[in-house]
Amino acid sequence: MTDQGLTPPQTVPALSATSLNKTFTVRENGLGKPARYVHAVSDFSFDLPVGSTLGIVGESGCGKSTTARLLMHLVKPDSGQIRLSGEPVSRAKRDLKQFRRKVQMVFQDSSASLNPRLTIEQSITFAPMVHGVSLRAARETAWRLLDRVGLDPARFTGRYPHELSGGQRQRVNIARALALNPRVVIFDEAVSALDKSVEAQVLNLLNELKAEFGLSYIFISHDLNVVRYISDHVLVMYLGQVVEQGPVDQVYATPRHPYTRALLASMPSPDPEQRTMAAPITGDPPSPIDLPPGCRFAPRCAFAESICDTMPYELRHGETRVRCHMADPKLGHSKAEVIQ
């Protein structure tokens, strides 16, 4: 989806994706039942401008993590393209190695993502050495980065992951991600497992590091408050599709898509005197297996009508893009004024 606007993009985005698709096949245990398909990610496009943070929110099963794994080339897309600084990324082994050097990832489970048999220093120096950095230089980097993420190198380099708290381990994971001097870091629920007071510390650290190292972030989370705080742009996913994306203040202040509205209205009110009185939508998000051909939110949407049996495109609405028939009055949805 290229921009047809009058102003050409000023700069090349750090990372971008065009029409990514990924479907997994579920095989029924050989008893002759037909295979079923999980539409994990469909028609997924975005630009990540240099130096900005793109937040991805959604509920479980919406394809957030598959998106992260597609962007890291950990799973192969069925179709679509990923560009790093405008250059298409090939899947040749050497290109991938270079790509992963520039795009790093921090996972949710801080202990499962560290090798329990390696000391902190070994964990951080491992990747640079694979990429041909000398042991001495890699160590120097490790010490510098540990110090930067707030762990005293003299105390921590020789320790093993189990000797650290969750917050400390996540700091190690951040240091390790930075050791290759990447341009983009993808955080997949990276602060979700931390206590609130530790989460605040880590978020502050991430903001400092972004400015200091000139990084661009993709920040995946189910926590709407965290995403609002850290992101410049936000992308809301529902059952494998982007339903709305745009500048974070605009999406949070005037959500257009009925799902975005429901999601934001579901946030607990912090004021005990102004409690939520009714749930915005009922039921659970359905499973992404064997989806109907039309709008994926239609079965839970209060505004659904016959036109919603066809798949809506992402429609431009000011600076945001909304995947809903109501976003364009010309499409003939009778309640189009609802989201204008």
């Binding site: 206590d195 605040a200 510390q201 502050n204």
Partner: peptide, 23 residues
């Protein structure tokens, strides 16, 4: 500290008032 360290009311672009250290 617990209430001011939540991201809920924090202004994007300014640091959150986090409690230092850990329990």
């Amino acid at each position: 500290g617990l209430l001011s360290s939540t991201v809920q009311g924090a202004v994007p672009g300014t640091p959150i008032k986090a409690i230092p250290g850990m329990p």
